Amino acid sequence: MKYRRVGNSGINVSEIGLGSWLTYGTASEQAAADACIQQAFESGINFFDTANAYNNGAGEEALGSALRPYNRSSYVLSTKVFFPMGEGPNDRGLSRKHIIEQCDASLKRLGVDYIDIYFCHRYDDQTPTEETLRTLDDLTRQGKILYAGVSEWSSSQISEAARIRDRHNLYPLISNQPIYNMFERYIENEVLEVSHSEGIGQIVFSPLAQGILTGKYKPGKNIPQNSRAANNHVNGVINSYLRDDVLSCVQELDNVAKELNLSLAQLSLAWVLRHKGVSSALIGASRPEQIIENVKAVEVELKSDVLEEIENILAKIKDFAPLR
């Protein structure tokens, strides 16, 4: 495993991190969570990500339970706040009330004394950004969180946060958590540049486009049984990828991977990690073997001719925009 600093902070995370979105949170999945986290530690992964909204808190409980046997100082744990956690008008967003209440609830569900990186899961246009940042600063000073970050914030929102930070001498944000993969590249336009200038690293989710970039879905073929796309409860945006032109490009990318003696997942993760502004790429795993395969991507360095070939393939669907 290799490790990178998160932005300008001093904390180091594994280039491959383990997320728990749509993966852990039911009693039947606890054994899978335990096995995957054991394999993650054996593979050198030290970064684990979840959110209070995943399965309405059950995702945090499952991850916390699976991490309990391990020394707290041996891993970096992140969770998030923003999405509704109840029916009340204050049970959502980034108000001081909601953040403080949910931070305490997350600590209890996770069974830990502190959260390493606490993310604002989205931007809240109903709450002054200064209120949100002051609350995160207070939680940091209290030791409940060590660092703060945001998720899917735009370049202008990140710049606004930086101005408020400087004006009030607040603890800085160290990370943004955006979606980033070969099909969803909006952060390349402005977010990466602004984040770099403000000392913010990217911890990206969905680097394999919810499994599309594993090659399991074929153009003109039926959706595999037991795959995410076959599960109406969790397939979500993945259905927008299931177009023959997109899947044909995936097959071409798979051919590139095979020429390099890589799996398509390894090629896709190495492509994401090619950018030094990316601190870590979050994978999901329901089986330890998936982790064993994916972590090999950190050893792959894609040469310029391969990157050019990938760009030529992706250019065939340059107007494709997944629904999310």
Rank of each mutant, 00 (worst) to 15 (best):
L67K: 09
Q266Y: 07
K316M: 01
A229Y: 13
G284V: 04
Q177N: 01
N12G: 07
T140P: 10
G199W: 14
M182K: 01
E160G: 05
E309H: 02
Y70K: 05
P89T: 01
I238A: 07
G10R: 14
N8H: 05
R243S: 02
S227P: 11
P219A: 13
N239H: 13
T214A: 04
L133R: 12
P288W: 03
G19D: 14
E289F: 04
V194N: 10
V250A: 05
V237M: 12
S248I: 13
H121M: 02
H275F: 09
N222A: 15
N71D: 11
T214G: 05
D305N: 15
S73I: 05
N261C: 08
N56W: 05
L314D: 00
D124R: 09
Q177Y: 04
G149I: 08
K316R: 05
G59Q: 09
P172A: 02
E190C: 05
K296W: 13
L110C: 10
N261Q: 08
G10T: 11
H121R: 12
E190R: 15
S227M: 08
G17K: 03
F83Y: 14
A162R: 09
V256C: 00
E131Q: 06
K216N: 04
A148V: 00
A229T: 15
G143C: 04
Q225G: 05
S156R: 12
M85F: 01
M182Y: 00
L173S: 01
V272R: 00
S279G: 04
A230L: 03
V76M: 02
I238W: 07
E259Y: 10
R165F: 10
M85A: 03
G44V: 06
A105R: 08
P322Q: 13
W271R: 07
V250D: 07
A27I: 15
V295W: 12
Q102V: 13
G7L: 05
A66T: 01
M1Y: 07
R68A: 13
R243K: 15
Q38I: 08
A321I: 10
R134N: 07
S156H: 12
I115F: 06
G111M: 13
G149Y: 09
L63G: 01
